[in-house]
Design a protein around this nucleic acid. Structure first.
Length: 108
DNA sequence: CCACTGACGAGTG
DNA sequence: GCACTCGCCAGTG
């Protein structure tokens, strides 16, 4: 892999890779598991730098509201993520949000 | 080096 | 639950 990834993001990617199928994780949670709490923003920023890397289930990463956060008005991008999550059993309500209470990844 | 931006979270009222 | 504010820091110009 000639993928040059900053060591700061390496931990983030590692955590995302560990997200089990059918589960989702929030930015803050990933940052926390990556050992960099309060850096939720950098998690999202890191994703934007690797979204094109399909070796990582980035689609399982959502915000604390259980909503899919996209960088901009890319509905197609959102739809893609939502589609992938639904394919894993994740269900979205009419508000386009998922039940973190049921689908949030818990380590253990 | 400085200023602004950005897939966010948590706290307060 | 919603609106507002602060914090945190890499990337870009």
């Amino acid at each position: 892999m000639t993928l040059k990834k900053p060591s700061r993001y390496e931990a983030i990617y590692a955590v995302i890779r560990r997200i089990p199928k059918g589960k989702v994780a929030t930015y803050g949670q990933i940052a926390r598991l990556a050992g960099i709490p309060r850096h939720a923003r950098q998690v999202g920023y890191a994703l934007s730098a690797m979204t094109e890397d399909r070796t990582i289930p980035w689609h399982r990463v959502i915000n604390a509201k259980g909503e899919i956060s996209t960088r901009i008005t890319d509905e197609i991008f959102e739809n893609t993520q939502k589609m992938r999550l639904e394919a894993e059993g994740i269900v979205f309500n009419s508000e386009g949000r998922t039940s973190l209470h049921c689908y949030q990844w818990k380590k253990g």
